[in-house]
Amino acid sequence: MPDPRAPVVTDQPHATAPLSPRRRQLLEAAQHVIADEGLKGLTHRAVDRRAGLPEGSCSAYWRTRQALQAALASYVSDALLTDVDELAARMQAASPDEATTVGAAVDLFLQWLDQRELLIARLELTLAASRDADLRALLVDHRARLVTIVDQIMCAAGKEQGGLSAEALVASYDGVLLAALLRPPADRRSFLEQSMALLGESLSSAPVA
Protein backbone atom coordinates (compact mmCIF):
# COMPACT_ATOMS: atom_id res chain seq x y z
CA MET A 1 0.00 0.00 0.00
CA PRO A 2 1.18 3.56 -0.71
CA ASP A 3 2.59 5.45 2.23
CA PRO A 4 -0.23 7.61 3.68
CA ARG A 5 2.31 10.34 4.24
CA ALA A 6 3.06 10.53 0.51
CA PRO A 7 2.31 13.79 -1.36
CA VAL A 8 -1.15 14.53 -2.69
CA VAL A 9 -1.89 12.48 -5.80
CA THR A 10 -3.07 14.07 -9.03
CA ASP A 11 -4.59 12.34 -12.02
CA GLN A 12 -4.44 15.43 -14.19
CA PRO A 13 -1.96 14.86 -17.04
CA HIS A 14 -0.82 18.48 -17.11
CA ALA A 15 -0.55 19.07 -13.38
CA THR A 16 2.88 20.17 -12.27
CA ALA A 17 4.69 19.77 -8.99
CA PRO A 18 8.18 20.51 -7.69
CA LEU A 19 10.57 17.84 -8.93
CA SER A 20 11.64 16.23 -5.68
CA PRO A 21 14.56 13.77 -5.60
CA ARG A 22 12.06 10.90 -5.36
CA ARG A 23 10.11 12.10 -8.41
CA ARG A 24 13.36 12.46 -10.35
CA GLN A 25 14.41 8.96 -9.30
CA LEU A 26 11.13 7.51 -10.52
CA LEU A 27 11.16 9.38 -13.83
CA GLU A 28 14.74 8.35 -14.48
CA ALA A 29 13.69 4.76 -13.82
CA ALA A 30 10.74 5.20 -16.19
CA GLN A 31 13.13 6.26 -18.95
CA HIS A 32 15.11 3.06 -18.47
CA VAL A 33 11.94 0.96 -18.52
CA ILE A 34 10.92 2.44 -21.87
CA ALA A 35 14.41 2.04 -23.31
CA ASP A 36 14.48 -1.64 -22.34
CA GLU A 37 10.85 -2.67 -22.79
CA GLY A 38 9.20 -0.03 -24.97
CA LEU A 39 6.25 2.09 -23.96
CA LYS A 40 4.08 -0.99 -23.52
CA GLY A 41 6.31 -1.99 -20.62
CA LEU A 42 5.79 1.28 -18.77
CA THR A 43 3.81 0.31 -15.69
CA HIS A 44 3.93 1.57 -12.13
CA ARG A 45 5.27 -1.76 -10.92
CA ALA A 46 7.99 -1.81 -13.58
CA VAL A 47 9.10 1.68 -12.57
CA ASP A 48 9.13 0.75 -8.89
CA ARG A 49 11.24 -2.32 -9.61
CA ARG A 50 13.68 -0.38 -11.76
CA ALA A 51 14.00 2.35 -9.13
CA GLY A 52 14.50 -0.24 -6.39
CA LEU A 53 11.55 1.16 -4.42
CA PRO A 54 8.61 -0.54 -2.68
CA GLU A 55 5.57 -1.36 -4.79
CA GLY A 56 3.15 1.57 -4.76
CA SER A 57 5.85 4.25 -4.77
CA CYS A 58 5.23 5.38 -8.34
CA SER A 59 1.43 5.32 -8.06
CA ALA A 60 1.66 7.50 -4.96
CA TYR A 61 2.77 10.32 -7.26
CA TRP A 62 0.99 9.47 -10.53
CA ARG A 63 -2.04 7.26 -9.99
CA THR A 64 -2.83 6.56 -13.65
CA ARG A 65 -0.61 5.42 -16.49
CA GLN A 66 -1.69 8.50 -18.43
CA ALA A 67 -0.49 10.77 -15.64
CA LEU A 68 2.83 8.91 -15.51
CA GLN A 69 3.29 9.26 -19.27
CA ALA A 70 2.51 12.99 -19.14
CA ALA A 71 4.95 13.53 -16.27
CA LEU A 72 7.66 11.64 -18.14
CA ALA A 73 6.96 13.57 -21.36
CA SER A 74 7.38 16.87 -19.50
CA TYR A 75 10.51 15.63 -17.75
CA VAL A 76 12.18 14.49 -20.98
CA SER A 77 11.12 17.55 -22.98
CA ASP A 78 12.24 19.95 -20.23
CA ALA A 79 15.66 18.28 -20.11
CA LEU A 80 16.11 18.75 -23.85
CA LEU A 81 14.79 22.31 -23.78
CA THR A 82 17.17 23.25 -20.97
CA ASP A 83 20.15 22.01 -22.99
CA VAL A 84 19.04 23.86 -26.12
CA ASP A 85 18.29 27.02 -24.14
CA GLU A 86 21.81 26.96 -22.71
CA LEU A 87 23.22 26.52 -26.22
CA ALA A 88 21.19 29.49 -27.43
CA ALA A 89 22.49 31.65 -24.60
CA ARG A 90 26.08 30.75 -25.48
CA MET A 91 25.51 31.44 -29.17
CA GLN A 92 23.90 34.81 -28.53
CA ALA A 93 26.69 35.86 -26.19
CA ALA A 94 29.50 34.81 -28.53
CA SER A 95 28.03 35.83 -31.93
CA PRO A 96 29.56 32.71 -33.49
CA ASP A 97 30.09 31.90 -37.15
CA GLU A 98 28.33 28.98 -38.83
CA ALA A 99 31.15 26.49 -38.20
CA THR A 100 31.15 27.24 -34.48
CA THR A 101 27.37 26.90 -34.31
CA VAL A 102 27.46 23.55 -36.11
CA GLY A 103 30.24 22.32 -33.84
CA ALA A 104 28.32 23.27 -30.71
CA ALA A 105 25.17 21.56 -32.02
CA VAL A 106 27.13 18.40 -32.87
CA ASP A 107 28.58 18.30 -29.34
CA LEU A 108 25.08 18.68 -27.88
CA PHE A 109 23.70 15.90 -30.07
CA LEU A 110 26.53 13.59 -29.05
CA GLN A 111 25.74 14.35 -25.42
CA TRP A 112 22.12 13.34 -26.03
CA LEU A 113 23.14 10.20 -27.90
CA ASP A 114 25.13 9.15 -24.86
CA GLN A 115 21.83 9.39 -22.96
CA ARG A 116 20.15 6.61 -24.94
CA GLU A 117 17.24 6.34 -22.53
CA LEU A 118 16.39 10.02 -22.91
CA LEU A 119 16.14 9.87 -26.69
CA ILE A 120 14.26 6.57 -26.83
CA ALA A 121 11.74 7.80 -24.25
CA ARG A 122 11.17 10.93 -26.33
CA LEU A 123 10.68 8.92 -29.52
CA GLU A 124 8.28 6.46 -27.87
CA LEU A 125 6.24 9.25 -26.27
CA THR A 126 6.09 11.18 -29.54
CA LEU A 127 4.60 8.15 -31.27
CA ALA A 128 2.14 7.65 -28.41
CA ALA A 129 1.08 11.30 -28.74
CA SER A 130 -0.25 10.57 -32.23
CA ARG A 131 -2.97 8.51 -30.50
CA ASP A 132 -3.39 10.56 -27.32
CA ALA A 133 -4.80 14.09 -27.59
CA ASP A 134 -3.68 15.18 -24.11
CA LEU A 135 -0.15 13.93 -24.60
CA ARG A 136 -0.06 15.49 -28.06
CA ALA A 137 -1.05 18.89 -26.69
CA LEU A 138 1.72 18.71 -24.10
CA LEU A 139 4.39 17.76 -26.64
CA VAL A 140 3.18 20.31 -29.20
CA ASP A 141 3.63 23.03 -26.57
CA HIS A 142 7.15 21.85 -25.78
CA ARG A 143 7.99 21.62 -29.48
CA ALA A 144 6.79 25.18 -30.07
CA ARG A 145 9.15 26.35 -27.33
CA LEU A 146 11.98 24.38 -28.92
CA VAL A 147 11.31 25.94 -32.33
CA THR A 148 11.44 29.40 -30.76
CA ILE A 149 14.82 28.65 -29.18
CA VAL A 150 16.21 27.25 -32.45
CA ASP A 151 14.98 30.36 -34.24
CA GLN A 152 16.95 32.46 -31.73
CA ILE A 153 20.08 30.40 -32.41
CA MET A 154 19.60 30.90 -36.15
CA CYS A 155 19.25 34.63 -35.69
CA ALA A 156 22.41 34.72 -33.56
CA ALA A 157 24.25 32.97 -36.40
CA GLY A 158 22.91 35.47 -38.95
CA LYS A 159 20.32 33.13 -40.48
CA GLU A 160 17.03 34.92 -40.00
CA GLN A 161 14.79 32.68 -42.08
CA GLY A 162 11.54 32.89 -40.16
CA GLY A 163 9.68 30.48 -37.92
CA LEU A 164 8.86 28.00 -40.68
CA SER A 165 12.54 27.41 -41.38
CA ALA A 166 13.23 26.87 -37.69
CA GLU A 167 10.39 24.36 -37.52
CA ALA A 168 11.72 22.51 -40.57
CA LEU A 169 15.18 22.50 -39.06
CA VAL A 170 13.90 20.99 -35.80
CA ALA A 171 12.12 18.27 -37.78
CA SER A 172 15.31 17.60 -39.73
CA TYR A 173 17.34 17.39 -36.52
CA ASP A 174 14.89 14.78 -35.22
CA GLY A 175 15.62 12.63 -38.26
CA VAL A 176 19.37 13.12 -37.97
CA LEU A 177 19.31 12.15 -34.28
CA LEU A 178 17.31 9.00 -35.02
CA ALA A 179 19.69 8.00 -37.81
CA ALA A 180 22.70 8.68 -35.57
CA LEU A 181 21.18 6.57 -32.80
CA LEU A 182 21.24 3.57 -35.15
CA ARG A 183 24.92 4.05 -36.04
CA PRO A 184 27.93 2.71 -34.13
CA PRO A 185 29.11 5.28 -31.56
CA ALA A 186 32.45 5.66 -33.34
CA ASP A 187 30.71 6.83 -36.53
CA ARG A 188 28.33 9.30 -34.98
CA ARG A 189 30.43 12.46 -34.87
CA SER A 190 31.39 12.24 -38.53
CA PHE A 191 27.80 11.53 -39.53
CA LEU A 192 26.48 14.43 -37.46
CA GLU A 193 29.08 16.88 -38.76
CA GLN A 194 28.31 16.01 -42.38
CA SER A 195 24.55 16.05 -41.87
CA MET A 196 24.56 19.36 -39.99
CA ALA A 197 26.77 20.95 -42.63
CA LEU A 198 24.37 19.82 -45.37
CA LEU A 199 21.40 21.20 -43.45
CA GLY A 200 23.23 24.50 -43.02
CA GLU A 201 23.96 24.71 -46.72
CA SER A 202 20.35 23.96 -47.58
CA LEU A 203 19.18 26.66 -45.20
CA SER A 204 21.60 29.21 -46.65
CA SER A 205 20.32 28.59 -50.16
CA ALA A 206 16.64 28.55 -49.18
CA PRO A 207 14.58 31.67 -49.95
CA VAL A 208 13.53 33.75 -46.99
CA ALA A 209 9.85 33.10 -46.13
Rank of each mutant, 00 (worst) to 15 (best):
S130N: 07
R49C: 06
S95E: 13
L203G: 09
A179P: 04
A67D: 06
L80G: 08
G52L: 04
L39N: 10
H44C: 00
Q66E: 14
R145T: 10
R145L: 13
L72E: 07
A168K: 08
A121S: 15
L135N: 04
V176N: 01
A93T: 11
D85F: 04
W112Y: 15
M154R: 14
L26I: 06
D134T: 13
T82A: 14
A15L: 11
Y75T: 07
T10L: 09
A70R: 12
R65M: 04
G103S: 12
R143L: 12
D83M: 01
S95H: 14
Q111G: 12
L192E: 08
Q12A: 08
P18S: 09
P185A: 12
L181N: 04
L181G: 03
E28H: 08
G38L: 12
R50W: 03
M91A: 15
V176R: 01
A30Y: 03
L118M: 10
R5V: 01
A35C: 09
Y173R: 15
A168N: 10
H14C: 06
L113T: 10
L42S: 03
A79I: 07
A88H: 01
P207G: 09
S59L: 09
A94D: 15
S172W: 10
I120Y: 00
E98W: 15
S95C: 13
R22L: 12
S165I: 10
T10H: 13
D141M: 04
L113A: 08
A30C: 05
S77C: 10
G56A: 09
C58H: 09
V176I: 15
R49W: 01
R50T: 12
L198P: 00
A73I: 03
H142E: 06
A104F: 07
L53E: 15
G175D: 01
A93L: 14
A168C: 11
R50V: 04
P4W: 01
A129E: 03
A133P: 05
I120F: 01
A168E: 09
F191K: 07
K159G: 05
R23S: 07
A209K: 03
A197G: 07
S95K: 14
L113S: 13
R122A: 14
R63Y: 14
A46Q: 07
S190H: 14
D107E: 15
